[in-house]
Nucleic acid binder design. Structure first.
Length: 281
DNA sequence: CTAAATACCTGATGGC
DNA sequence: TGCCATCAGGTATTTA
């Protein structure tokens, strides 16, 4: 489901809710979420939030970071939450029923709560000190696409030894953090680059254009509250509006908005890419 | 080191 | 109506 703009929208929704009361309790379903060396300590981790004060909410790539302070001035803990393919955050009040596939509830002393809902359970979370998080997948992320660290030079350098398809290179979170299939495919369409081309075949000028286009695309999608293809919702339950501006994603057989040729779908690494053969080379 | 294949899950959709 | 195959916004691990 969620790529950078959707995750950013969730963060903004959480910030807007302005949680201030301490955590009264935490509930965790008995089902596993993401399995892996970094994610394994999920159950113990969530209990550590009890009694803590909700602090700063930020984002790195597709990861949500939420700091929880110790009222006794101890070290802060950070909850890292990844929404996987189907994860969602829901803000609820006392008495409101949890939806199906809820796996975590953080209940605050003001009777509001934050529910993590994830049917496919590809997402996961972990509560730990920052030093522990930085040794996990967060420490391997590439530059933030909305920061100055991401530009044509950085992209050109990162692609120089890669022979994978450029679409797949853009999905690699160590090259650029937060880009997923929709925004990769759309940026390549805007730039007129065939998604199947090998990453190291792009010119420096094309990398300049691509980096700028990726940034613009993400900023625009954030403005519209993300892309809702099927079930994505922000923390306030709102659908995104960016799907109306998609040029090729999910539009196999429809006509290219630029040249009217038929949009094609190809499989790259098992995942669909959409492109216009006439416009993208 | 790169890169490809596979695994992890549920739900929606389309063909027969 | 049911049954089966295919597909979905992502990442971690295994294999080559």
């Amino acid at each position: 489901m969620p790529e950078l703009p959707e995750v950013e929208t969730v963060c903004r929704g959480l910030r807007r809710a302005d949680f201030e009361a301490p955590v009264r309790s935490v509930w965790r379903s008995s089902l596993d979420l993401r399995i892996g060396s970094y994610w394994a300590r999920v159950n113990e981790g969530s209990a550590k939030l009890k009694g803590r004060l909700p602090g700063k909410i930020s984002r790195r790539g597709k990861y949500i970071l939420w700091s929880f302070e110790d009222p006794q001035q101890g070290a802060p803990l950070t909850m890292v939450l990844h929404l996987g393919m189907s994860g969602a955050v829901e803000i609820r009040r006392k008495g409101e029923k949890k939806t199906a596939h809820t796996h975590l509830q953080i209940i605050f002393a003001d009777d509001r709560r934050v529910d993590y809902v994830d049917p496919r359970r590809f997402g996961g979370f972990r509560v730990d000190q920052w030093s522990a998080h930085s040794k996990g997948p967060l420490g391997k992320l590439g530059p933030e696409p909305l920061s100055d660290a991401f530009d044509g030079a950085a992209l050109y350098g990162a692609l120089s030894r890669r022979k994978v398809a450029i679409r797949d290179a853009l999905l690699n979170q160590s090259i650029v953090a937060g880009v997923g299939n929709i925004y990769a495919v759309e940026a390549l369409f805007v730039c007129g680059i065939d998604p199947q081309r090998s990453a190291n075949s792009l010119t420096r000028a094309q990398c300049d254009l691509l980096a700028k286009t990726i940034r613009k695309g993400l900023v625009r999608a954030i403005e519209l509250g993300g892309t809702t293809l099927r079930d994505y919702r922000g923390a306030d339950g709102e659908k995104g509006k960016h799907q109306q501006e998609l040029g090729v994603y999910g539009r196999e057989g429809q006509s290219c908005p630029r040249c009217k040729a038929s949009i094609e779908r190809v499989l790259l690494g098992g995942r669909s890419a959409f492109f216009c053969r006439a416009c993208q080379r």
